[in-house]
Design a protein around this nucleic acid. Structure first.
Length: 415
RNA sequence: CGGGGCGUGGCUCAGUUUGGCUAGAGCGCUUGAAUGGGGUUCAAGAGGUCGACAGUUCAAAUCUGUCCGCCCCGACCA
């Protein structure tokens, strides 16, 4: 793909609307733009990253037997009134009246909607367990949107729901999700701390939060210096409950939350099933969220330097950026295009900077965008019949003849 | 919603305190020339309802009022 076709509006200077590093870099590197507070356009590069993340999530969800569907974003208010959550969520919910006079809301989350669906479609234990998920835009009229994608009024979330006939089934699905989440965040290049919020009451609710350490994070997590146990911040107990050791306070961004719901929604909405004895029981539920668009910011918060973004391999918008340093030199361009085509034919995602810009501008933008592998083709390349590879993360430069360079690139990407 | 800050070409800002000719700079953009391995240089251009409305005044980017928008701090969340 040619740079000039993609639409990558980079900025030299930091827009004053942005405070956090991820927000600044997303704007400067041309990944997104603001329409209004808390509402953003994903530009082509930003969309590609979102799609990469969604791809990882899909793989991991499907691998544990979850099935993807897509629920509506437009809901009747009555459904929310049945569980009383229209009041709990209150002002955060966007509400309006349509032309028929119906009270309608834009979905801030989907427990009611999925439960309503399952209530109508599931009636026997033979149909359980069932795990469904979706990746969808949520709407929340936040009191104060903030930090770009970290707290937006319109954002993309993966939400999954499990339906079981007993607690053992729920525990099993919950554990599968827990492990899948660890794999997802790891593949996204994120370090996360997992905190538990256990009520301690038998049969009580249980939840885990996946918290990505970031200086701009809004949530405080306590981390034990000795055993690395993490827990939600609590001013009263600053000692680790396991080893009684001192704990560090760490700023984090909440990127995932898994929750054992029990029968709260199934009971309120009458989502029951017949068990093997013919008894009518409420379905046991769990819900599992990941802030997909928020992940983009969290990943950048953890992967950047003074030059710009450093995308982890699996979520980079492109894997390779080819830089012909002088596009007016036809030999250089020919070589660059040939290399681009060869790499693309090997299955790599390649971007070629075909702009008539000076080398310095291209280098700066390349580092800003953060594509993992840069391939430089200039005069030296022609004279010496070599290609220069630069690894964005380490700044390491490798100079090799073309075919060896191609092999080297393959190795670097597949490590 | 409470507190604080800001609003001047696409971006970053000066000018507002103390009202005064046709509102400026850098970057970006257009054209030409040189250049071509870390945001190069020179020349010539285009681009502005100074957030909006109302008011004060001979005169408003500048003073007053109302409103709108954006950012930051607080309660909330993926």
């Amino acid at each position: 793909m040619f740079w000039s076709k993609v639409f990558i509006p980079t900025l030299k200077e930091t827009p004053k609307e942005a405070e956090s590093v991820s927000h600044q870099l997303l704007l400067r590197a041309g990944f997104m733009r603001m329409l209004m507070a808390g509402v953003y356009t994903y530009l082509p590069l930003g969309l590609r990253v979102l799609e990469k993340i969604q791809g990882i999530i899909r793989q991991e969800m499907n691998a544990i037997g979850a099935s993807q569907l897509l629920l509506p974003a437009l809901h009747p208010l009555e459904l929310w009134q049945k569980t009383g959550r229209d009041k709990d969520i209150g002002e955060v919910m966007f509400k309006f009246i349509d032309r028929r006079g119906r009270n309608v809301v834009l979905g801030p989350t989907h427990e009611e909607i999925i439960t309503s669906l399952v209530k109508d479609q599931i009636s026997s234990y033979r149909q359980l367990p069932l795990v469904l998920y979706q990746i969808q835009t949520k709407f929340r009229d936040e009191i104060r949107p903030r930090n770009g994608l970290i707290r937006a009024c319109e954002f993309i979330m993966k939400d999954a729901y499990s339906f079981d006939q007993d607690k053992e089934g729920l525990d099993k699905n919950y554990q599968l999700m827990y492990e899948a989440y660890k794999r997802i965040f790891k593949r996204c290049g994120l370090t996360v701390l997992i905190t538990e919020a256990d009520s301690g009451i038998m049969g009580g609710k249980e939840s885990h939060e996946f918290m990505a350490p970031a200086t701009q994070g809004e949530d405080l997590v306590l981390l034990c210096k000795k055993c690395s146990q993490a827990k939600a911040f609590d001013a009263d107990s600053l000692l680790c409950s396991k080893c009684n050791f001192q704990m560090d306070k760490i700023n984090t961004i909440e990127v995932g939350h898994i929750f054992k719901l029990g029968i709260k929604y199934s009971q309120a909405l009458g989502a029951n099933f017949s068990n093997a004895l013919g008894e009518l029981k409420p379905i046991i539920m769990g819900c599992y969220g990941i802030g997909v668009s928020r992940l983009v910011s969290a990943i950048i918060e953890q992967n950047n330097d003074a030059q710009g973004i450093i995308w982890p391999k699996e979520v980079a918008p492109y894997q390779i950026l080819v830089l012909p340093l002088d596009v007016t030199n036809s030999q250089i361009m020919q070589e660059a295009i040939a290399l681009h085509d060869q790499l693309a034919s090997l299955g790599f995602q390649v971007l070629l900077d075909d702009r008539d810009e000076r080398a310095g501008v291209k280098f700066k933008d390349a580092d800003l965008l953060g594509i993992p592998i840069q391939v430089v083709i200039g005069r030296n390349s022609l004279v010496e019949q070599t290609i220069e590879i630069k690894v964005r993360l380490t700044q390491e430069k490798i100079i090799k003849p073309r075919q060896e360079a191609v092999e080297q690139i393959g190795k670097l990407i597949h490590i």
